[in-house]
């Protein structure tokens, strides 16, 4: 599981947000476009691309995309 690939796949779930605004340090829940729908897409993306289950707790307890990556990549 490559960190930059994950970041790109994460950014792909957004339609309106400039990709440049989405980095590993981005606090993703503060993005204007963040919504329950985007959360569902992130969960589905991680499952499809990496066979990793992201839970509500993972999203709740991660502030940045990098933190989310660290939480799930070790599983």
């Amino acid at each position: 599981m490559d960190k930059n690939e994950f970041l790109k796949a994460f950014a792909d779930q957004f339609d309106e947000t400039e990709p440049a605004l989405i980095t590993l340090d981005t606090k993703f829940k503060e993005l204007e476009e963040w919504s329950s729908m985007v959360a569902l897409m992130i969960i589905a993306m991680a499952d499809e691309n990496y066979n990793k289950k992201i839970t509500g707790a993972d999203l709740r307890e991660s502030d940045t995309i990098g933190q989310l990556y660290e939480r799930i990549s070790s599983r």
């Binding site: 329950s36 959360a39 569902l40 969960i43 839970t55 509500g56 999203l59 709740r60």
Partner: peptide
């Protein structure tokens, strides 16, 4: 549902 939606939602 609590696995995919926030407690607030």
């Amino acid at each position: 549902a609590s696995e995919v939606h926030s407690a607030e939602a």
